[in-house]
Design a protein around this nucleic acid. Structure first.
Length: 353
DNA sequence: AAGTCGGGGCC
DNA sequence: GGCCCAGACTT
């Protein structure tokens, strides 16, 4: 264990008490609010998650209120935040807490980590903040700060690295105030020891920081590999009927956007023109089923929607249908459905003009 | 152990 | 363009 561990915790906490942001979940030790905030903030910047937290607390002030909502309503409120399995697990766990645990959250790390959507980080955060259990959190901020200050070059996304950083974080933890200490470490990473161009010359740790000493700040933390981004080609068929109805389908099964809605989707292996679209069996079935009379391409240049690991080259095709399309919904009700941002952008542009 | 899962902000 | 974000789950 590093000799200056006690100094590290003290300096960190002192810094935190001065510089911490005033966030709505801070100051509470109600596990419902802490749990909700932690799920929302997984892989999500505070600035992006904050409005969603406020919306959720207002719509669902208690875990019972969240459990009583429908998954559809929860997904609609989550729309735009991404990683939608978080929303589905959130709703599932709310029901589990209410129906199986008498509305009471588990009281320690071991119990919390069994909840769906709650892993090592989130269980540690809730346990330390709500119950003062000395469990160290390790998130992206912690990896960065510890790798730099203590000069740890083990890749943070390797099995060995995860083990090593968790162990180091646990040794450094101030057990007299684990919740405050954990938040201080993360806040320091988020606000001072940032990924790009941190102000090392004024840093409170620059007399001790291994990365600063060895001029390795820009190389830490070490991360293995780059992801292989795949290209996919989406063709959305936007059906317009004479009585202002259209067709939306729910995405089921595996893959992106599970549980969200979209227009009928035809995926191709490259960008296609109208002739090629009409050659597709799936299109012919759709055209026959809904008696599509004509089809026109809305955007000549594809919309490129970028996800972490795939780029979606998307074209919207507008089709006119007979009045009697089945399972249709009114266009004015489209906004009631949770849809991917890619579709929300199109809907806003197309139906409001 | 490697893949998968979103969207946005920053450089 | 690439990287990262108060990570978790599946295969």
């Amino acid at each position: 264990m590093p000799k200056f561990a006690p100094f590290f915790a003290n300096k960190l906490t002192s810094w935190y008490l001065i510089h911490k942001r005033d966030l709505p979940w801070r100051g509470s030790d109600n596990p419902y609010y802490i749990w909700l905030s932690e799920i929302i903030l997984q892989q999500t910047r505070v600035a992006q998650g904050l409005p969603y937290y406020l919306k959720f607390v207002e719509a669902f002030p208690t875990v019972e209120a969240l459990a009583n909502a429908s998954e559809t309503d929860v997904l609609k409120l989550w729309q735009g935040l991404g990683y939608y399995s978080r929303a589905r697990n959130l709703h599932f766990t709310a029901n589990y807490i209410v129906n199986t645990c008498n509305g009471v959250f588990p009281k320690d790390y071991q119990g919390l980590v069994t909840l769906k959507g709650v892993g090592d980080y989130t269980a540690s955060a809730i346990a330390s903040i709500c119950y003062n259990e000395p469990t160290a959190v390790v998130d992206g901020n912690v990896y960065r700060v510890l790798s730099r200050v203590f000069g740890v070059h083990t890749p943070i996304n390797s099995t060995q690295g995860k083990k090593e950083f968790k162990s180091l974080a646990q040794q450094l933890l101030d057990e007299s105030q684990p919740g405050t200490y954990n938040q201080a470490l993360m806040e320091f990473g988020a606000r001072y020891c940032v990924p790009q161009n941190p102000e090392c010359s004024n840093c409170i740790f620059n007399d001790r920081c291994e990365a600063y000493k060895t001029n390795a700040v820009g190389q830490l933390p070490v991360k293995l590999k780059k992801r292989n981004v795949k290209k996919r080609y989406f063709n959305y068929i936007v059906i317009l009927s004479e009585n202002d109805k259209t067709l939306l389908q729910k995405r089921t099964g595996k893959g992106i956007w599970q549980g969200l809605y979209e227009f009928p989707l035809l995926e191709s292996t490259s960008e296609i023109n109208e002739f090629q679209l009409k050659e597709m069996n799936a299109f012919q079935e759709l055209a026959k089923k809904h008696q599509l009379s004509e089809i026109t391409l809305y955007n000549e240049t594809s919309v490129i929607h970028k996800l972490s690991h795939q780029h979606l080259y998307t074209r919207f095709w507008i089709g006119s249908a007979s009045e009697k399309i089945t399972n249709s919904i009114s266009i004015k009700n489209v906004k009631e459905y949770a849809v991917p941002v890619l579709l929300q952008n199109f809907i806003t542009e197309f139906f409001s003009s």
